[in-house]
Design a protein around this nucleic acid. Structure first.
Lengths: 115, 115
DNA sequence: ATCATATACCTAAATTTCTTATGTATATAA
DNA sequence: TTATATACATAAGAAATTTAGGTATATGAT
């Protein structure tokens, strides 16, 4: 609600990682999963999510599949081969960044801490 | 170099925290400190840093003091009273965000992990 | 001498990423 | 029939950054 401006840059990683764990998900499902996993503290807005999904698809990292459920359309996303590689890359990038953040922000930090 | 796009949103926190630890610092010094603390992996660009410093000053969180060193001008920044309070706030906000990120990205995470 | 690099400040245009607002449409519970 | 939930989407605006440029002094190397 208040610190959502910190998401910048990590939304793609969130999407890719959730799809690594779940095989296929649709947009609305992703917003609900994130809300549920963070006890409502992080809310992915649709205005951020859909453009991000479209971009990842355009880059060839995601593929889509339309399904009809109760007369409602769902657009399922799954990782492509390239997408699967990208998850690993984006995850280690994010982990590296968080480690560097720790080095800056916790000056008394010993090497080999757990993240 | 590669993951600098993840800084978005945390630059202010970095600045405030470094100033909490160091009493007073000038802009160039901040860029060098961050580079040194992260083994060159995070480089704060001047185009990001100076506007951020000016904004924090305009918000009353930082105060400035000019010094002459070897015919060169240095602009030292320090925390104001409001700035000192803001460090705590911004730090717990960032920590909360990173914890939520962990909950999303590491589904096997047990409660009470260390950050 | 002069050239590159380091130190030290700054701004502006462009880009990226997000928020906010809006639109469409179906299903369901009040 | 009205509000809420589900489900997609786009567009205008805001915010934070990158990229690129500018000014100026000090210093080590060619």
């Amino acid at each position: 609600m208040s610190n959502n401006n910190l998401i910048k840059g990590s939304l793609q990683t969130i999407i890719l990682k959730l799809l690594e764990e779940n095989e296929k998900m649709y947009g609305y499902e992703i917003t609900q999963r994130v809300k549920e996993l963070t006890a409502g503290e992080i809310k992915i807005t649709e205005g951020a999510l859909y453009p991000a999904l479209h971009k990842l698809e355009a880059e060839g990292l995601l593929s889509t599949e339309i399904q009809q459920v109760d007369n409602r359309v769902r657009k399922y996303y799954s990782l492509t081969k390239d997408g699967q590689k990208e998850v690993t890359s984006k995850m280690s990038e994010l982990q590296g960044f968080v480690e560097n953040l720790q080095r800056i922000l916790t000056p008394d930090l010993k090497p080999g801490f757990n993240i």
